[in-house]
Design a protein around this nucleic acid. Structure first.
Length: 584
RNA sequence: CGGGCAGUAGCGCAGGGGCUAGCGCGUCUGGUUCGGGACCAGAAGGUCGCGGGUUCAAUUCCCGCUUGCCCGACCA
């Protein structure tokens, strides 16, 4: 490819709003171009890089028996009504009517579509297992796109779906995917970790997320450096120690202005661990079959030294979504914000009590009266509710396995795998006949990777002051040929010879100064740069510089193609040699 | 959806109730340079986001809308 003919240009200055380095360079180097909030075009460089990533994904999916298909973005809404997600997913799912008034959706994932195909294809256990995947456009009307390709509304996703007759089969393909995902990230050169995760809107029980650790990440990951326990904060467990003692009689005390746990603890001169905190949310409960929606107050109680994790609370309550409760909604149930507990409360609300509060004795809790708290409150004796783990894991909390302090880190989710079970097969009647003639629901799994987000993470991981430093497995071209010579004939010949040797090369044949060409080469970040300069050319030599290390070597023109092929293999080996099978 | 900021040339920005709306970079022409974003001379390029209001006069002030960014709610 000749740069004189390239569709995109580089930008000297970062466009407004590019706050992360990776995003800034992708824009400035001309990989991507924004069209709207969370909507991007891939320009030739970005598209070429994306294709390389996609092909790595393809190869790894094929390796574990995946068959590639392609499903439509536009789905009839009826399928989504069958699964219930037409109702349970809010505005993130884009809906519209076609010309005759049929409800349609833009698929944000393809469980419904693939299950519709599968229920027609699968009739007998002899047809199982099956495993399909696609690399396709998704639209999710995210309320807050941000950080370039990190969080977008339209994006390319590899989504795969497995169909098995039993849990053992599902677990096998799940393990295959677990390993394949690491191979994909490793081959792209992207550092990644797997963490146990929430199942969110996908449903199902077991799930893992793959994370690229980065300060610009929006997810919080809890990691135990001692035993290796890792989980998304949304589900991360912590080891809680309880102070169990003889229950003392409950007593009301005056605590003026002590509305927060800090105030209360210092006023009574006690540890926050001896208090019970109340958190009020309103949960939305949606009937999957009818779409009917009901709001209900959720009163959550937790020991004063801990925080409530909303995702856990939402699960414990069985709600579709949560929002903070208004003061009136709390008062309607007989509780007083700032001085609240479940003691003496009444009305239609759900009480969720964290283990920390349920199993500790003699805690200070609100008296539901302005300016008063109870001391020595005890779960079961004084109030009741559903006991669950709703505590939010924080940096320094103890590991549930080895009881040593854990760390909190920020990460970007670059993939996820779910054991769906029968959520969709049951809802959509996707069954098979077993040896005994019984109809059973197919056991499903689903597996996703955001391709554009992967590119964004790579740009984040591989850059310096000059621009991108793309790993050779995902760089748009392997080689950047920079010609500084007046005599274009020599440069053209070298370009031709590289092409003939099958080398993927970007040729800077523009009439620009050396500085401009070098700056652009650094910005675009191809792994190997060949410089043709007048001086070295006279001696029959050219200079080869590696973007990753800055290492410079001089080669005879006669050997150039051969030597470059060698350099390419070495660059590839640097990445591929690091692949270690990681098993679940 | 709440809060904040912004929309002026391709990009980054300045300006300001009236006159020809500027600057840097980029672009075009000519010339000099030629291994790290060169220099000289000349030139092109703007419905100042859209609509309404105030005013003799609005790009500037006011209102509405819209688009984008940031924070939060949200997020497989």
């Amino acid at each position: 490819m000749r740069m004189s003919n390239m569709f995109s240009r580089t930008l000297r200055e970062a466009p407004q709003g590019a706050e992360s380095k990776g995003y800034e360079y992708l824009l400035r180097a001309g990989y991507i171009k924004q069209l709207g909030a969370g909507i991007f075009s891939l320009l030739p460089l970005g598209f070429k890089s994306t294709k390389k990533i996609e092909n790595i994904i393809r190869e790894e999916m094929d390796r574990i028996g995946g068959q590639e298909i392609l499903m439509p973005v536009v789905n009839p809404a009826d399928l989504w009504k069958e699964s219930g997600r037409y109702y349970s997913i809010d505005k993130e799912l884009a809906r519209f009517k076609d010309r005759v008034g049929r409800d349609m959706v833009l698929a944000m994932t393809h469980e419904e579509a693939v299950t519709d195909i599968a229920r027609a294809e699968i009739d007998s256990y002899k047809r199982l297992p099956l495993f399909v995947y696609q690399i396709q456009t998704k639209f999710r009307d995210d309320p807050r796109p941000r950080a370039g390709l990190i969080r977008v509304r339209e994006f390319t996703m590899k989504d795969a779906y497995s169909f098995d007759r039993d849990q053992e089969g599902l677990e096998k393909i799940y393990r295959d995917n677990y390993r394949a995902y690491f191979r994909i990230y490793d081959r792209c050169g992207l550092p990644s970790i797997a963490v146990s995760s929430d199942t969110g809107m996908m449903g199902g029980k077991v799930a893992h997320e793959y994370m690229y650790l980065s300060p610009i990440g929006e997810d919080t990951i809890i990691i135990c450096p001692h035993c290796g326990y890792t989980a998304n904060r949304q589900i991360a467990k912590i080891y809680k120690e309880y102070e169990k003692e003889e229950a003392k009689p409950i007593e009301k005390v005056e605590t003026p202005h002590a509305k927060t746990i800090d105030d209360l603890a210092s006023f009574l001169n006690i540890d926050a661990k001896k208090t019970c905190k109340a958190v009020f949310m309103v949960g939305s409960f949606i009937n999957d079959k009818t779409g009917e929606e009901e709001d209900k107050l959720i009163a959550a109680f937790i020991r004063g030294d801990l925080e409530v994790e909303e995702a856990k609370l939402q699960h414990a309550a069985g709600a579709n979504s949560l929002r903070p409760a208004h003061e009136e909604e709390i008062r309607e149930c007989g509780m007083v914000p700032g001085f609240a507990s479940a003691i003496g409360a009444k009305g239609n609300f759900i009480t969720i009590v964290d283990e920390s509060a349920a199993y500790s004795s003699n805690l200070v809790a609100g008296a539901n009266e302005e300016g008063y708290h109870y001391i020595n409150t005890n779960f079961k004796r004084d109030y009741d509710g559903i006991v669950a783990d709703i505590a939010s894991a924080r940096d320094g909390h103890l590991c549930p396995h080895c009881h040593k302090p854990m760390e909190a880190k920020k990460g970007i989710e670059i993939g996820n795998i779910f054991q769906l079970g029968t959520k969709y097969s049951e809802a959509m009647n996707c069954t098979f006949q077993d040896e005994t003639g019984a109809q059973k629901p197919v056991i499903m799994g689903c597996y996703g990777i955001g391709v554009g987000r992967l590119l964004a993470c790579l740009a984040e991981e591989y850059n310096d002051e000059g621009g991108l430093k793309m790993p050779i497995t995902v760089a748009p071209y392997d080689v950047h040929l920079v010609s500084l010579v007046k005599d274009t004939e020599v440069a053209e010949k070298i370009y031709e010879s590289l092409l003939e040797s099958g080398i993927d090369v970007l040729y800077d044949d523009r009439k620009e100064s050396a500085g401009v060409k070098f700056a652009d080469a650094d910005l675009i970040g191809l792994p190997i740069r060949i410089t043709l300069g007048n001086r070295s050319l006279k001696e029959g030599k050219v200079e080869v510089k590696l973007r990753s290390t800055g290492e410079i070597t001089s080669y005879d023109i006669a050997d150039l193609a051969k030597e470059i092929k060698e350099e390419i293999s070495k660059e590839k080996a640097k990445i591929l040699d690091n692949i270690v099978d990681k098993n679940l």
